[in-house]
């Protein structure tokens, strides 16, 4: 909990305009109305079925950055784009870029996101690999494979007077093309982060 609090404070201090906004929050547009916020999140990954065992995920941290475009003035239809990296010592690290369409109902200052989309995930080998070249087995590093990523996410956030709107999210995603005989593998990401709205 202390860690989460620290992350939120740290995120709030990220940008001078945010600090200003905290001082003059009432003069600013509500965060929910603006497109192109900076989305920053810390995430935890595991290869698991949806809402499977989440405990191993906390050993596999990562970061993601993104932004979103709101299709309407109410800000409840949106398109996000996010790029991230997670470390997974046993199942392989992942580097991804994903875009998702989302529906965001608001309940006062609290909002929920339901998102789905498509992306690309470069999954690394967890171990160094060997390849056969000119009749000899040679080290080939941990280079992996690019896989189609199909995410489905849920998150809950808070749009307060600050330009920093924290959220927590759960992202399930299937990776297609893992292996010819294991065509799809399930994955999950737990995300904690914030939408940071700049005072343009």
């Amino acid at each position: 909990m202390k860690k989460t609090l620290f992350i939120f404070i740290w995120l709030a201090a990220l940008h001078p305009s945010v600090s200003r906004a905290q001082r003059n929050g009432s003069e600013l547009l509500p965060a929910g109305r603006m497109s192109w916020p900076l989305m920053v999140s810390v995430q935890f990954h595991s290869l698991a079925l949806p809402v499977g065992n989440i405990r191993p995920a906390f050993a596999n941290p990562g970061l993601a950055l993104g932004t979103e475009y709101r299709y309407n003035r109410r800000g409840n239809l949106l398109q996000s784009i996010q790029a991230g990296y997670y470390r997974n010592r046993y199942a392989g690290d992942g580097l991804f870029i994903v875009t998702q369409a989302g529906y965001r109902p608001h309940f006062g200052p609290v909002y929920a996101d339901l998102k789905a989309g498509v992306g690309w995930n470069y999954t690394f080998h967890p171990n160094t690999t060997l390849v056969l070249k000119e009749g000899q087995w040679q080290p080939a590093g941990r280079t992996g494979k690019g896989l189609l990523m199909v995410p489905l996410g849920l998150s809950i956030g808070y749009n307060g007077p600050s330009l920093v709107a924290p959220f927590v999210g759960y992202q399930f995603f299937a990776l297609a093309g893992y292996n010819p005989s294991v065509p799809v593998v399930p994955n999950q990401l737990l995300q904690v982060g914030a939408h940071i709205h700049f005072n343009y």
Partner: peptide, 14 residues
């Protein structure tokens, strides 16, 4: 033991 995780001919020692 070796494993072709992604089925692309890159073997991991497992």
């Amino acid at each position: 033991s070796y494993f072709d995780r992604f089925g692309n001919g890159k073997l991991e020692n497992i």
